[in-house]
Computed example of a mutant assay.
Amino acid sequence: MSLPASVSAWLLVLLCAVSGAYCLGRVRRAGGAAAGEAVMGFGMALMAVPLRQHGDGWQTTALGLVFCAAALHALWLLRRGAHHVHHLVGSLTMVYMAVAAGYGSGHGGGLPALTGVLLLYYAGYVVLGGARLITTGATTGPALRHASGAWSGSAELTRACRLAMGMGMLAMLLAM
Protein backbone atom coordinates (compact mmCIF):
# COMPACT_ATOMS: atom_id res chain seq x y z
CA MET A 1 0.00 0.00 0.00
CA SER A 2 1.42 3.36 -0.95
CA LEU A 3 0.87 6.75 0.61
CA PRO A 4 -1.03 9.44 -1.28
CA ALA A 5 1.32 11.79 -3.13
CA SER A 6 0.50 14.77 -0.90
CA VAL A 7 1.24 12.80 2.29
CA SER A 8 4.58 11.56 0.99
CA ALA A 9 5.42 15.09 -0.21
CA TRP A 10 4.71 16.50 3.27
CA LEU A 11 6.82 13.74 4.85
CA LEU A 12 9.67 14.79 2.54
CA VAL A 13 9.15 18.42 3.59
CA LEU A 14 9.31 17.38 7.25
CA LEU A 15 12.41 15.22 6.73
CA CYS A 16 14.26 18.02 4.95
CA ALA A 17 13.18 20.70 7.46
CA VAL A 18 14.30 18.59 10.43
CA SER A 19 17.63 17.90 8.71
CA GLY A 20 18.03 21.63 8.01
CA ALA A 21 17.22 22.48 11.64
CA TYR A 22 19.75 19.95 12.93
CA CYS A 23 22.43 21.36 10.61
CA LEU A 24 21.55 24.89 11.72
CA GLY A 25 22.19 23.78 15.30
CA ARG A 26 25.65 22.54 14.25
CA VAL A 27 26.68 25.84 12.63
CA ARG A 28 28.51 27.13 15.71
CA ARG A 29 30.64 23.98 15.96
CA ALA A 30 31.14 23.08 12.30
CA GLY A 31 30.98 26.43 10.53
CA GLY A 32 30.54 26.77 6.77
CA ALA A 33 29.80 23.15 5.93
CA ALA A 34 26.95 22.95 8.43
CA ALA A 35 25.58 26.30 7.23
CA GLY A 36 25.57 25.03 3.66
CA GLU A 37 23.83 21.84 4.75
CA ALA A 38 21.22 23.86 6.68
CA VAL A 39 20.49 26.00 3.60
CA MET A 40 20.25 22.82 1.55
CA GLY A 41 17.85 21.17 4.01
CA PHE A 42 15.54 24.18 4.28
CA GLY A 43 15.68 24.80 0.52
CA MET A 44 14.81 21.18 -0.19
CA ALA A 45 11.90 21.47 2.24
CA LEU A 46 10.61 24.57 0.43
CA MET A 47 11.00 22.94 -2.96
CA ALA A 48 9.15 19.82 -1.82
CA VAL A 49 6.05 21.71 -0.58
CA PRO A 50 3.20 20.18 -2.62
CA LEU A 51 1.08 23.36 -2.72
CA ARG A 52 3.47 25.10 -5.12
CA GLN A 53 2.44 24.79 -8.75
CA HIS A 54 4.91 24.47 -11.63
CA GLY A 55 5.84 27.76 -13.16
CA ASP A 56 5.29 29.92 -10.03
CA GLY A 57 7.63 32.74 -11.04
CA TRP A 58 8.95 34.23 -7.82
CA GLN A 59 9.34 30.92 -5.92
CA THR A 60 11.27 29.29 -8.74
CA THR A 61 13.43 32.38 -9.19
CA ALA A 62 14.04 32.80 -5.45
CA LEU A 63 15.02 29.15 -4.98
CA GLY A 64 17.21 29.27 -8.08
CA LEU A 65 19.04 32.34 -6.77
CA VAL A 66 19.47 30.88 -3.28
CA PHE A 67 20.99 27.72 -4.70
CA CYS A 68 23.18 29.63 -7.15
CA ALA A 69 24.56 31.48 -4.10
CA ALA A 70 24.97 28.15 -2.29
CA ALA A 71 26.87 26.78 -5.31
CA LEU A 72 29.21 29.78 -5.25
CA HIS A 73 29.71 29.26 -1.51
CA ALA A 74 30.49 25.57 -2.07
CA LEU A 75 32.91 26.53 -4.83
CA TRP A 76 34.65 28.87 -2.38
CA LEU A 77 34.79 26.10 0.27
CA LEU A 78 36.39 23.66 -2.21
CA ARG A 79 39.76 25.13 -1.26
CA ARG A 80 39.31 23.50 2.18
CA GLY A 81 38.67 19.98 1.00
CA ALA A 82 37.06 17.59 -1.44
CA HIS A 83 33.98 17.05 0.77
CA HIS A 84 32.63 20.31 -0.58
CA VAL A 85 32.36 18.82 -4.08
CA HIS A 86 29.20 17.12 -2.84
CA HIS A 87 27.84 20.48 -1.65
CA LEU A 88 28.56 21.94 -5.07
CA VAL A 89 26.82 19.03 -6.82
CA GLY A 90 23.87 19.35 -4.42
CA SER A 91 23.51 23.09 -4.96
CA LEU A 92 23.74 22.76 -8.73
CA THR A 93 21.21 19.91 -8.62
CA MET A 94 18.80 22.15 -6.73
CA VAL A 95 19.31 24.93 -9.32
CA TYR A 96 18.60 22.37 -12.05
CA MET A 97 15.41 21.18 -10.32
CA ALA A 98 14.24 24.77 -9.71
CA VAL A 99 14.74 25.58 -13.40
CA ALA A 100 13.06 22.32 -14.45
CA ALA A 101 10.11 23.10 -12.15
CA GLY A 102 9.85 26.62 -13.53
CA TYR A 103 9.82 25.49 -17.14
CA GLY A 104 8.52 21.98 -16.56
CA SER A 105 4.83 22.53 -17.18
CA GLY A 106 4.24 21.10 -20.61
CA HIS A 107 7.95 20.45 -21.26
CA GLY A 108 8.67 17.47 -19.02
CA GLY A 109 10.88 17.43 -15.95
CA GLY A 110 14.27 18.42 -17.27
CA LEU A 111 16.87 16.69 -19.40
CA PRO A 112 16.48 12.90 -19.06
CA ALA A 113 20.22 12.18 -19.44
CA LEU A 114 21.21 14.73 -16.79
CA THR A 115 18.43 13.58 -14.47
CA GLY A 116 19.66 9.99 -14.93
CA VAL A 117 23.25 10.90 -14.08
CA LEU A 118 22.08 12.77 -10.98
CA LEU A 119 19.90 9.82 -9.97
CA LEU A 120 22.92 7.51 -10.22
CA TYR A 121 25.05 9.93 -8.20
CA TYR A 122 22.50 10.24 -5.39
CA ALA A 123 21.67 6.52 -5.39
CA GLY A 124 25.38 5.81 -4.92
CA TYR A 125 25.65 8.53 -2.27
CA VAL A 126 22.71 7.06 -0.33
CA VAL A 127 23.97 3.47 -0.54
CA LEU A 128 27.50 4.49 0.49
CA GLY A 129 26.21 6.80 3.25
CA GLY A 130 23.93 4.09 4.59
CA ALA A 131 26.74 1.55 4.61
CA ARG A 132 29.04 3.98 6.44
CA LEU A 133 26.35 4.78 8.96
CA ILE A 134 25.68 1.12 9.64
CA THR A 135 29.35 0.22 10.05
CA THR A 136 30.06 3.30 12.20
CA GLY A 137 26.99 2.64 14.35
CA ALA A 138 28.07 -0.97 14.87
CA THR A 139 31.50 0.05 16.14
CA THR A 140 30.54 3.02 18.31
CA GLY A 141 27.10 2.02 19.56
CA PRO A 142 23.95 4.12 19.52
CA ALA A 143 23.94 7.83 20.26
CA LEU A 144 23.08 8.46 23.90
CA ARG A 145 21.74 11.57 25.55
CA HIS A 146 23.89 12.87 28.43
CA ALA A 147 22.46 14.58 31.49
CA SER A 148 23.80 17.84 30.04
CA GLY A 149 21.39 17.45 27.14
CA ALA A 150 24.16 16.99 24.55
CA TRP A 151 24.14 14.05 22.20
CA SER A 152 27.08 11.72 22.15
CA GLY A 153 27.63 10.20 18.76
CA SER A 154 26.96 13.49 17.00
CA ALA A 155 29.07 12.22 14.10
CA GLU A 156 26.46 9.49 13.57
CA LEU A 157 23.65 12.05 13.72
CA THR A 158 25.48 14.21 11.19
CA ARG A 159 25.87 11.21 8.88
CA ALA A 160 22.20 10.34 9.36
CA CYS A 161 21.24 13.94 8.55
CA ARG A 162 23.33 13.86 5.36
CA LEU A 163 21.85 10.48 4.45
CA ALA A 164 18.32 11.84 4.97
CA MET A 165 19.04 14.80 2.71
CA GLY A 166 20.56 12.47 0.10
CA MET A 167 17.42 10.35 0.18
CA GLY A 168 15.33 13.50 -0.09
CA MET A 169 17.30 14.61 -3.12
CA LEU A 170 16.88 11.16 -4.67
CA ALA A 171 13.12 11.29 -4.05
CA MET A 172 12.84 14.76 -5.58
CA LEU A 173 14.78 13.67 -8.67
CA LEU A 174 12.59 10.59 -9.02
CA ALA A 175 9.52 12.83 -8.87
CA MET A 176 10.73 14.97 -11.80
Rank of each mutant, 00 (worst) to 15 (best):
H146V: 09
A5L: 10
A160I: 12
G32I: 02
V117H: 05
A35D: 10
G108W: 00
V85Q: 14
H87T: 13
R29D: 11
S154P: 07
C68V: 10
T93F: 01
R52E: 03
L11M: 07
L11P: 02
T135Y: 10
G124H: 07
L46C: 02
G104Q: 03
R162A: 11
M176R: 09
A71R: 05
V18I: 07
W151C: 07
L170S: 05
H86Q: 14
A100P: 05
A147E: 12
G109M: 11
I134S: 10
S152R: 08
A35Q: 14
H73G: 12
P142M: 14
P4V: 00
M97L: 14
A48E: 00
T93R: 04
G109T: 08
L133V: 08
R162I: 12
A147T: 10
V27Y: 10
Y125K: 11
A69S: 13
L133P: 03
G108A: 03
M47N: 05
L92G: 13
V85S: 14
G43Y: 06
L88V: 02
L144G: 12
L77A: 13
C16Y: 00
G102C: 03
A164C: 09
H84G: 03
L173I: 07
A98E: 06
G110L: 06
L170W: 00
T61H: 06
S6V: 12
H54K: 09
G20D: 01
R79K: 13
T60K: 02
H84L: 09
M165R: 10
A35H: 12
G110N: 00
G20S: 02
L163M: 05
Y121H: 02
H86D: 14
H107Y: 13
A9G: 00
V13R: 04
L163P: 07
L46Y: 00
E156K: 15
A101E: 10
H87I: 05
R162Q: 12
T115G: 05
L46G: 01
G31M: 05
F67W: 04
Y121K: 04
M176D: 02
G124F: 06
A175Y: 04
V99T: 00
S8I: 03
L111N: 15
M165I: 08
G32V: 06
A5D: 12
H73R: 11
A5W: 04
T93N: 02
L163E: 01
A123L: 12
I134N: 08
R80V: 12
A131I: 14
G32P: 07
G149I: 09
A33H: 11
L63A: 02
G64M: 02
G168P: 03
R80H: 15
Y22K: 06
V126S: 13
Q53V: 10
M97C: 07
L111I: 07
V85G: 15
S154Y: 09
G109S: 13
M167S: 11
V127S: 08
P142F: 14
L3Q: 08
V18H: 04
S152D: 04
V49S: 01
W10D: 04
G166H: 06
M94G: 01
A164W: 05
T158F: 06
L92S: 14
H107G: 10
A175R: 08
G36F: 01
S91A: 14
H83K: 15
C16P: 03
L63V: 01
V127Y: 07
G104Y: 03
H54T: 05
M94Y: 00
A113V: 15
G57K: 08
T115H: 08
